[in-house]
């Protein structure tokens, strides 16, 4: 069952479901195994491998006999995220998530993030054209790397956002700290 707990944590993260009823013995045992693992996804992934190798090394032979849980699920592998995502709280988070309602509540907004990025730049970077249309701000503002919203639209391959900015009169000749104009990124 240790395998099961680590496996669930490695795949889903910390136990996030309600405890099954007392008489659902099997489900309860599975839930308990999962719930008692106090590791991040990443730690659990390593622990799963380590436990496996320990068992194979023959130091823990009883465990595998009990571990008859057939592991289901993971087949086509996808990338695990190496970072945890905190709940969205800033306008920049809401723009990145495309949460238009929240963004509307917080507009107009003149603040920039820790890198000097404006909401318009985040929207251009994330391909959030609808949000861009809600923002009435300086089109040519630059962040601490000298990038404009148009740089971001082009760097992140969001053609429609770039076309929108140009149609609104955004300058194409501003140079960023890599000495690139937006025009050169097209």
């Amino acid at each position: 069952m240790q395998f099961y707990g680590l496996y669930k944590t490695a795949i889903i993260g910390k136990c996030n479901t309600p405890q099954p009823g007392y008489f659902e013995f099997r489900e309860r045992a599975k839930w308990d195994a999962w719930n008692k693992i106090d590791l991040t996804k990443e730690q659990a992934q390593q622990a799963y491998i380590d436990l496996f190798n320990t068992v194979l090394a023959g130091q823990n032979q009883g465990e595998i006999a009990q571990g008859d849980e057939k592991l289901e699920g993971v087949k086509v592998s996808v990338m695990t995220s190496e970072h945890t995502t905190p709940a969205a709280s800033t306008i920049f988070d809401f723009i990145q998530n495309g949460d238009i309602a929240k963004v509307k509540e917080l507009l107009p907004c003149n603040s920039v993030d820790a890198n000097g990025m404006t909401p318009l730049m985040w929207a251009a970077d994330g391909g959030r054209l609808e949000i861009m249309k809600l923002i009435d701000a300086d089109l040519d503002a630059q962040d601490f790397d000298g990038n404009t919203a148009l740089h971001y639209a082009l760097l992140s391959e969001n053609r429609e956002c770039a076309e929108y900015l140009i149609s609104k009169g955004a300058r194409q000749d501003i140079i960023n700290s890599d000495n690139e104009t937006a025009l050169s990124l097209k």
Binding site: E82, P86, D93, L155, S156
Partner: peptide, 17 residues
Amino acid sequence: VGFSQLPHNTTMASHIK
């Protein structure tokens, strides 16, 4: 397509780079 996640507080521009 959801194969990977853009890390929180990271721009797509820097992710591509």
